[in-house]
């Protein structure tokens, strides 16, 4: 095959595949603007556009509240995870202390264990601490990440050791070295971890599902599930809610694509 033919073939394939990825999204957006009767029909575009579907979602369920809860919880978890992971990673990557490698191996060993194993004891722990059905119960158990520590350590190991040795010579304390030398150098890692943690908790399903009972504490995924269970026949409204659910994700993705791709290729995988 000649070169131009191959190029054209590649573009045809790429475009066909991209359309396969896009079609469900397109159907979702178009269905969200249709009347209920029209959702079931095959015509791709609504004959009359119904943007008020989006308003109806807010009238039927406290969707703004779900939004707030998801963003609030995910932001706190992200902040705490980044802080505790970066600090621990600094101790694992840049400080020497007895037992360091043993403790790190313990971290690595637990990363293989499925989440469902720890979910049950953590639930009973929340019962004991009376944190069921609370923001604290959603935030605190998620704020300490073995994976985050692992990822940040990987980034910090790439910082040349001459840097903190020089700072130490100048009489800098470990805190100064952490804040002023290592953390600025590990910023790409921190941003990557922040995005992954935020995304993971924005979409987190299992833990809020078992923890939250009150309507005003529901996060987006739980609210969506509830909306779908109760109003499931109103496909157009459900689709409007789904669109609103994923728009923030698309915005984050477009803004942070560079860090995400780099993060994944360094060993982070979105679950």
């Amino acid at each position: 095959m000649s070169k131009p033919v191959k190029t054209i073939l590649a573009y045809v394939l790429l475009t066909a595949l991209a359309l396969t990825m896009l079609l469900p999204f397109l159907w979702m957006v178009l269905a969200s603007f249709k009347s209920l009767a029209e959702v079931e029909k095959l015509n791709p575009f609504p004959t009359i556009w119904h943007p008020e579907n989006y308003l109806s979602v807010f009238q039927q369920v406290p969707f703004a509240r779900y939004y707030f809860n998801s963003v609030f919880v995910a932001s706190w978890v992200t902040f705490l995870t980044c802080l505790t992971s970066a600090m621990a990673a600094f101790a694992f990557a840049r400080l020497r202390w007895p037992g360091r490698d043993k403790v790190f191996q313990l971290y690595l060993a637990t990363m293989m264990i499925p989440g469902v194993v720890t979910m049950i004891p953590n639930y009973t722990l929340m019962v004991k601490l009376q944190l069921l059905d609370s923001y604290a119960g959603l935030i605190i158990p998620a704020a300490f990440s073995a994976f985050g520590t692992f990822l940040m350590r990987q980034f910090m190991l790439t910082v040349p050791s001459a840097l903190d040795e020089a700072a130490e010579m100048d009489g800098a304390s470990p805190w100064q070295i952490f804040w002023d030398v290592i953390l600025p150098m590990a910023r790409p890692g921190l941003i990557t971890l922040a995005i992954f943690t935020f995304m993971g908790n924005y979409g987190s399903f299992f833990w809020p599902l078992i923890l939250i009972k009150s309507e005003h504490l529901r996060t987006l995924p739980i609210g969506m599930l509830f909306f779908d269970t109760v109003y499931g026949r109103q496909t157009n409204l459900i689709m409007a809610a789904s669109v609103m659910n994923i728009i923030p994700l698309i915005v984050i993705f477009v803004v942070s694509q560079k860090f995400l791709v780099q993060g994944i290729q360094m060993g982070a995988v979105k679950g």
Partner: peptide, 15 residues
């Protein structure tokens, strides 16, 4: 919590 760990990858960086 819902991020999958990747303990098995060889470290990219120096020791």
């Amino acid at each position: 919590m819902s991020v999958t760990p990747t303990a098995m990858r060889p470290p990219v960086a120096a020791d």
